[in-house]
Amino acid sequence: MTRILITGMSGAGKTTVLRELSRRGHRTIDTDHDGWVLPDGTWDETRMSALLEMHMPLFVSGTVENQGAFYDRFSAVVLLSAPAEILIERVSLRANNSYGRSTADQAEILQFILDVEPLLRGGATLELDGRRPVSELADELERLIRVSP
């Protein structure tokens, strides 16, 4: 079954596009919530393995250190990206998550853009511009569900 991972930096639009996909009736998991991420910042491998063994189309979002260990279980790994100034603006304004409001958080995000985003780009099968309208991003992600084996 088709499983799509949506990854990217904080503020790239992962939660927003996941919310739209859920609104359209798709099964979605935002690993930033509900205990998917362990205190060490990695996915709970047992729980993630069990999820990915389920036979249903699924969109998963998250960015964690051990996500690469699961890439072979996804039909596609989609990197949402946006320029640093857009990411910082978005995280400083969002109401659903306090991460990114402090100058220390923002400095960390800027460092992650330099250190982590290239790794995500290297593992991605597709990169989408997170500045695009959410409906367009969701349309493109739905196309992946329809064409993947």
Rank of each mutant, 00 (worst) to 15 (best):
L79S: 03
R101C: 13
N66Y: 03
S81F: 07
R101L: 12
T103F: 12
V64Y: 00
F74N: 04
A107S: 11
S81E: 14
L110W: 05
F74C: 04
I109E: 12
S92H: 15
R101E: 14
A84T: 12
L58D: 06
F59E: 07
G62R: 00
E65V: 01
D115E: 14
E108R: 10
R101W: 13
N97C: 13
D115M: 01
A76W: 10
A107C: 15
E65F: 06
A84V: 15
A69D: 12
A84E: 14
F112N: 04
I109N: 03
N66G: 09
S61Y: 02
L80R: 05
G100F: 02
E117L: 02
I113E: 01
S81K: 13
S98I: 08
L93A: 06
E65M: 10
Q106C: 06
Y99N: 06
A104Y: 12
R90I: 10
Y71L: 07
L119V: 13
A104W: 15
F112M: 01
G100M: 00
V77F: 00
L87C: 09
F74Q: 01
F70E: 01
Q111C: 11
N97P: 06
Y99C: 01
Q106D: 14
A107V: 13
I113R: 04
I86H: 12
D105E: 05
S92M: 15
Y99G: 01
L114F: 09
Y71W: 11
A95C: 11
L110P: 00
V78K: 05
Q111Y: 11
L87R: 04
A95H: 14
D105L: 07
R101K: 13
E85V: 03
I86K: 13
L79K: 02
F74D: 00
V91G: 02
L93C: 08
N96V: 07
S98N: 14
D115V: 05
R73K: 14
Y99R: 07
S92Q: 14
A76S: 15
V78S: 05
V60I: 02
S81P: 02
I86N: 09
R73D: 13
L93I: 06
Y71M: 08
P83L: 11
E65G: 02
L87D: 10
A95F: 08
Y99A: 08
V116L: 04
